[in-house]
């Protein structure tokens, strides 16, 4: 079997409906746009948790900012009937992720927990995945980043500091998921309890707009939230099958 055959075979396997059924978890997130206030606490929480660098004013102006989760803003209407809508945008952990098909070295692939992975030491920095991603949530390290001493003392030891030439993105805080599984094993449990693991953004959200959990558990908060009639996925027509589900904003006049 040639390498290419093996690759495509593996690929088909992942794409077969029901492939994820046999595994333990399928992590998912819901974001209630009717609760989101756009305060950006999630953005800072993510920055602190995942060792995201400060790129500086110049790099920022060149569009090289690093934010695994960001708040997008869309104005609607004109003064005085004007509205501003916020939407937190992060890696959608698509089950049919376009970024995964294009990586020449399989540095990004789908794992058994339904996560879209990014393996930094495998990445060679072609940036193809960022081009293929319709949500624009992949970030490339254009430089080696510096932390002015002693800011580096805050760096999270559970997360790699990425170097120049590497693509990175939201991991659903894999280090926290890993730790929760570890605790479950310590307690002799087979599974992680609902609510036991929360990514940094979910944990800090002051409006409680974000919910995270295992959608294979029908009673989990996230499963129930995903069944809300307001649920939709961004750019659903692209069939990327995201694991991040948004709940529509309710448009009511005072």
């Amino acid at each position: 079997m040639s390498l290419l055959d093996r690759f495509t075979d593996g690929w088909r396997k992942y794409r077969k409906p029901g492939y994820y059924e046999e595994f333990d978890y399928h992590w998912a997130m819901t974001i209630d746009l009717d609760k989101c206030t756009g305060c950006e606490a999630c953005v800072t929480a993510c920055q602190a948790e995942n060792n995201l660098p400060i790129v500086g004013e110049k790099a920022f102006a060149e569009g090289r900012e690093m934010k695994w989760i960001r708040i997008e803003r869309y104005w609607e209407g004109e003064y005085p009937d004007v509205k501003l809508r916020f939407i937190p945008m992060l890696c959608q952990q698509c089950d049919s992720a376009p970024c995964e098909t294009v990586c020449p070295v399989s540095a990004t692939y789908h794992n058994q927990d339904g996560l879209n992975t990014q393996i930094y030491n495998r990445c060679i920095g072609t940036r193809s995945c960022a081009v293929y991603c319709p949500y624009e949530v992949r970030y490339f390290n254009w430089n080696d980043h510096q932390w002015d001493a002693p800011l580096e003392q805050q760096l999270n030891p559970d997360v790699t500091v990425r170097e120049k030439g590497v693509m990175e993105k939201c991991t659903f805080c894999i280090q926290r998921i890993r730790q929760a599984k570890d605790h479950a094993k310590d307690d002799g449990r087979r599974r992680v309890r609902d609510g036991e693991v929360q990514p940094a953004c979910v944990q800090t959200c002051p409006a409680n707009a974000l919910v995270f959990g295992d959608r294979k558990d029908p009673n989990s908060q996230v499963s129930r939230s995903m069944n809300d009639p307001r649920a939709y996925r961004v750019l659903e027509e692209l069939n990327t099958d995201p694991s991040v589900v948004y709940l529509k904003k309710v448009d009511a006049k005072g």
Binding site: E72, F86, R224, P229, R230, Y246, L247, D251
Partner: peptide, 20 residues
């Protein structure tokens, strides 16, 4: 938004028992 329908909205009537 330019018709991309990224932030979707729904009418005021639609409120469900969201239990999160």
């Amino acid at each position: 938004d330019l018709g991309r329908n990224i932030v979707q909205t729904t009418g005021a009537g639609q409120h469900s028992a969201n239990l999160n």
